[in-house]
Design a protein around this nucleic acid. Sequence first.
DNA 1: ACCTGAACACCGTTCAAGT
DNA 2: ACCTGAACACCGTTCAAGT
Lengths: 245, 245
Amino acid sequence: MREEPDSPAAASGTGRRRGRPRHQAATREGIATAALEVARSHGYERLTMAAVARRLGVAPSALYNHVTGKADLLALLQDEVMGEVEVDGLRAAVAGEVPVREAVRDWAHSYRRVFAGHTPLIPMIATLPIAGAEQTQRMYDAVAAALGTAGVAETEVLPRIIALESFIYGSAFDVHAPAHLFEVAAAPGELPAFQAAAAACRRDIGIGIDGSHATDEGPAVGTLGVNPYADDPFETGLELLLAGL
Amino acid sequence: MREEPDSPAAASGTGRRRGRPRHQAATREGIATAALEVARSHGYERLTMAAVARRLGVAPSALYNHVTGKADLLALLQDEVMGEVEVDGLRAAVAGEVPVREAVRDWAHSYRRVFAGHTPLIPMIATLPIAGAEQTQRMYDAVAAALGTAGVAETEVLPRIIALESFIYGSAFDVHAPAHLFEVAAAPGELPAFQAAAAACRRDIGIGIDGSHATDEGPAVGTLGVNPYADDPFETGLELLLAGL
DNA sequence: ACCTGAACACCGTTCAAGT
DNA sequence: ACCTGAACACCGTTCAAGT
């Protein structure tokens, strides 16, 4: 076995001659998995067609036999990521085993946590038809069933889901914002309302004027990213959106 | 005057010799304006350094004397766009001239409408420090003052703003989603809860099973984009998030 | 200080050649 | 049908040369 530092398969250019191979080297499933691995280990800046191909041990041009382009690849990846969102609690709630409100809350937390690590996918998700996205369809069905169990009127189920989802996506962006996000260099008397609100908020969550998180208890429980302003607003908004459940 | 179809200034390569010009050809302000014009007239796919430079009548490399790179240019553009969000209603509410709840609602509608046309900026906004972004600071101050007027506790002002903003950004993505977003090719008995919810929603807003918007009254009042599922969820979620104002 | 023009690295995509 | 390898168009960025 040769040493292949980054790829489970043979590196491009060494392992295969020209022409059709005996066994298919790339598939849509394999491409989705490889894309997820690249995004996870190297980040979305490095998620290129070349990187995915290298991880599969094929030439970049080989990918175009299975996906129409990078947009298609990202759509595959999107459904792969959606499969990581936890929906078992929703199923249990429909079965009457746990309270619906808690189950939907847990789902929302899981959804935000998963996509906080995949924010570059979010802009395309909202405009991506769910036809053909199996995991996405399964998730929608689980949430719809849960909201139905909670007594939400049938015509209001989809709007409620979309409203929750929009809030979750927007909140996912905040998770990795820098701590000094809201620091301003305004003269005294400028922006009075905002400065007062920011100061009160800093006192409340215990961060320094420079954005340093100066708590001696360490990061607050449930903190996902580095932005101290992200978690509290998410909890606040989520509780408001769960009204009536 | 020569004919210059796309640019108010001289085209690159014709109008200027090498070396330092008498008058500065590019400024940060000018770059922001040019970027907004390019994005508006040709879309974000065509918003390139070369396109912005051409609109200013300079070489692409000249831009790097004023911005550190494309990310910096997009940050300038972001603040330019933020200046289009309507905040006069918020000021009036603080002055006691209009009800706060209506003013915040109108602001939210304006905010979503503006950024529905600039969704590619949204992923960067959440992680972009507001220091140096004048329009953004002014907007935050106006909203903070309005929420204070509404009696929101000072420590809760910033969380409420962030929660609203997250929801608005998430909702902005939905505006231009295709109408067949939620059409699935599922066998009868599959995805029962989701199918029922989608069917009820379609009946409610009057769209065909194929996603065609088959109302004979024309598009509903207040419709922004082409996605019939976008407006109702936005109104629903917004009202929930305005609770207590 | 601020511009031009040439150059570079990189990316997505196409396509002929090959089995 | 499915792969390789060369090629293309395009993009952001750098930098020497020039005033």
